[in-house]
Design a protein around this nucleic acid. Structure first.
Lengths: 231, 231
DNA sequence: CGTTTACATTGACAAATATCAATGAGCCTG
DNA sequence: CAGGCTCATTGATATTTGTCAATGTAAACG
């Protein structure tokens, strides 16, 4: 975990957050100087549930997971985070603590932004405030849908749903290398690792996907959607 | 469903929202004139998932449930809403639609506040904006915990959890008349009605609670918490 | 009163899912 | 290259949970 302070200027960064484009030029300068870029190896924790919330984080390369640590060391993956996405945390306005953990799935770089600065940016720049609100709300809606998926669908529907999520939202291709482990897929769909593996096999045998190790290709998206819908 | 426009002045209303106390006197006047109080019978829908989000709602008497309509007409109760609580909806900043339904559990009165006015109030009054953010965040945190409860705990843990919730957050007493039906308890804990009933019976037989129809008394809160913790 | 209606309860059974244990496969490391 | 590591896979089994059908119960109503 090496620190690369100001390794690059935000304005040249391909993975800069939407945040950057919604603040004044003056604030852009401030942010550029204040950010701290850090790289993490796959598997490392970027911030930990329960710890003090001192920074917000923007992922610049790699892939991270937002996960909740539940009972008996079982984790629930709430969402995967791609480059240019900003991760705040609901504790920011409540108790200054993280209420979920952020972990590197692949080797990942992130920029840390100090919470006081972030808050100022939000309050000084109305377009940013609106955008933050909209994104928070959007995540909340996704959370309701996730709640229903996990509580009302059976395993095949949940795995189908997850594969569609990975394809459309994360890897953005029908054919992708699945960099999350089987355990992480299980944590994303709230089931045991063994069950996740068995369902993947079933989907493969029924011909809607091909799976070879980490390589996944969705052959029949319509069929997969049907399975996802039916629960 | 009779309308009682301005049946009472907000400043005299015992169930007025925190909102009222965080805005300027001038805005208090405006709000007082603009609000629309409506009464609903138990079982009626106050607003419906999918419908246009035109108002926010403050419950003044009774009890309401926020629920998500999922697959096969199965509902998931997200939260119960007591008098003086304000219900917005995450669609407010996204697509102007309701993403969950609000239903009257008991006979319930609510005040409707037009969304345009509400938004103005939030943007004009900074203390209110902060408070809204804090409450939203708080609900989000509760949602994560709910997600873990429902996906990682077995049924006895979930029912124990629900009874504690009802006792501490809703009816605010160790002994209460449970005005939600068995079906609604099942929708709150994501299980079938029959399972909910059986677990209640088990809890009764193991002596941690007494149950007689709708009347519930928590005898052994410690024991109930243990069951809830263990999952 | 009997009847209807909605809600609550119970038991028997089937389905879904987790757990446990064993094995395999790939990859690093001394 | 052998050993040790992690992750993936498989089969057998036990547990959890839902479904279905029947019955009970009590308030509501003509």
């Amino acid at each position: 975990m090496a620190i690369f302070t100001n390794s690059e200027r935000c304005e040249n960064c391909r993975s800069r957050s939407f945040l950057f484009d919604l603040i004044s030029e003056q604030d852009q300068e401030i942010l550029d100087r204040a950010k701290q870029e850090v790289s993490f190896n796959a598997g490392e924790i970027i911030f930990k549930q329960g710890a003090m919330l001192t920074h917000v984080v923007c992922v610049t390369t790699g892939l991270a997971k937002i996960y909740f640590e539940g009972l008996d060391k079982k984790n629930l993956v709430l969402r995967l985070v791609k480059p240019s996405e900003l991760v705040g945390g609901p504790g920011m306005f409540v108790d200054q603590r993280h209420h979920y953990s952020l972990g590197a799935v692949e080797d990942t770089r992130v920029c840390f932004i100090e919470i006081g600065l972030y808050r100022e940016l939000v309050f000084r720049n109305k377009p940013l405030a609106h955008e933050v609100m909209a994104r928070e709300s959007h995540h909340r809606i996704e959370m309701y849908e996730k709640l229903v998926n996990l509580t009302q669908k059976q395993m095949p529907g949940r795995v189908a749903e997850a594969l569609i999520y990975l394809s459309t939202q994360v890897y953005e291709s029908l054919k992708f290398q699945c960099t999350i482990s089987r355990q992480e897929l299980a944590d994303l769909t709230a089931m045991s690792k063994e069950s996740a593996i068995r369902i993947l096999k079933d989907l493969k045998e029924s011909g809607v996907v091909t799976i070879d190790g980490n390589f996944v290709e969705i052959i029949d998206m319509k069929g997969l959607e049907d399975i996802s819908q039916k629960g």
